[in-house]
């Protein structure tokens, strides 16, 4: 498979997952703002933006409308759902000849809602529902039509790394909001994990339990550990070196180390400084992406010819 195509596949996975998870995070936060009367809109919105990696000047007013514009509707803002869907489509366009027709069309029709104005006309929470459904549609189409070759592994790798990253952000937003309300229930709901959580913990609803479930559960597909595990597997499938000792692949090493650290440290230790721990995790995801890029996608830059005429 061409390096350039592999890169496109990787980013399709990431962008689709990013759109979906941003929608989940926004869903939780808008709901919290509605339900909890005592919450300060300014602070919550500011925190949310900073956790999503958006910088805002200290003196600008930040309210829910600003957040929705920056993180959902504005196709020109790099953190918005609209731009993630646009980027997913652009990546798909670059890999179009390798995608199955249903896969391409599922991504393209999703994107078409943005220039056609359909996306902006939807309001929360409908719009978040729509994004989740479209992401499920794209992922389902991929699952049903793609061969399990390299392209698939790169797609999954992108998706898993993004999911680990975004779940950690979701956990961070919950941890920050915990001082003012009880965000864990809605956080679990946003992941579709509430029922699974209740069953697993036999109805014992604690913040600690919820954090544990979202971070460390080995069976829940959106947990950080599950995602990192899958990402490791993907790299392993791509590499298949059959080495007897250690790992050659820098990306695999980073992912594995972070997962092991999360799993083998005591929960209290991790929970003690949750926002910072989550930030470290996001950093690992970025480093792993860099490593994967260097290993598999490198060399696809255009060459300039310095010849004599």
């Amino acid at each position: 498979m061409l390096s350039r195509i592999a890169e496109s596949m990787f980013w399709i996975g990431r962008y689709v997952e990013r759109a979906e998870d941003t929608a989940r995070i926004l869903d939780v936060q808008t709901q919290l703002l509605l339900e909890e009367a005592g919450i300060d809109e300014q602070t919550t919105c500011r925190t949310l933006l900073s956790i999503m990696g958006v910088e805002v000047d200290d003196d600008t007013r930040v309210d829910l409308t600003t957040v929705l514009r920056l993180l959902a509707y504005d196709p020109h803002h790099p953190s918005s759902i609209a731009s993630a869907l646009g980027a997913a489509r652009e990546s798909a366009r670059r890999a179009r000849e390798t995608l199955s027709v249903p896969m391409w069309e599922s991504i393209n029709t999703t994107y078409r809602a943005i220039p056609s104005g359909h996306f902006t006309s939807m309001r929360p929470p409908m719009v978040f529902q729509w994004v989740r459904e479209r992401a499920a549609f794209i992922n389902g189409t991929a699952d049903a039509t793609m061969t399990r070759d390299e392209g698939w592994h790169f797609l999954m790798l992108g998706r898993c790394i993004e999911r680990a990253d975004m779940t950690s952000r979701l956990v961070a937003t919950a941890a920050v909001a915990a001082s003012t309300g009880s965000p864990w229930t809605s956080t679990l709901r946003a992941c579709g994990a509430y029922e699974a959580f209740l069953r697993t913990y036999r109805g014992m609803e604690t913040d600690r339990g919820a954090a544990e479930f979202l971070l460390l559960d080995r069976l829940f597909p959106r947990s950080v550990v599950f995602s990192l595990n899958r990402a490791e597997q993907c790299v392993d499938n791509l590499e298949s070196s059959g080495q007897r000792a250690g790992f050659q692949n820098e990306g695999q090493r980073l992912l594995g180390r972070t997962r092991a650290e999360l799993e083998y440290r005591s929960l209290s230790d991790v929970l003690a400084d949750l926002p910072n721990e989550m930030e470290r995790l996001q950093r690992t995801c970025a480093l792993a992406t860099e490593a994967v890029t260097r290993r598999y996608f490198a060399g696809a830059e255009a060459l300039a010819w310095q010849g004599v005429l």
Binding site: R4, E97, G299, E301, A302
Partner: peptide
């Protein structure tokens, strides 16, 4: 893209190709 897809071959850009010793190679994973 359509022709590459329907012929089942790679669609390459100039930067995917490199010439080595009089042969044309493409960069793959």
């Amino acid at each position: 893209a359509l022709l590459a897809r329907t012929m089942g071959v790679e669609l390459v850009e100039g930067r995917d190709l490199v010439c080595r010793r009089g042969r044309v190679m493409m960069r793959t994973t």
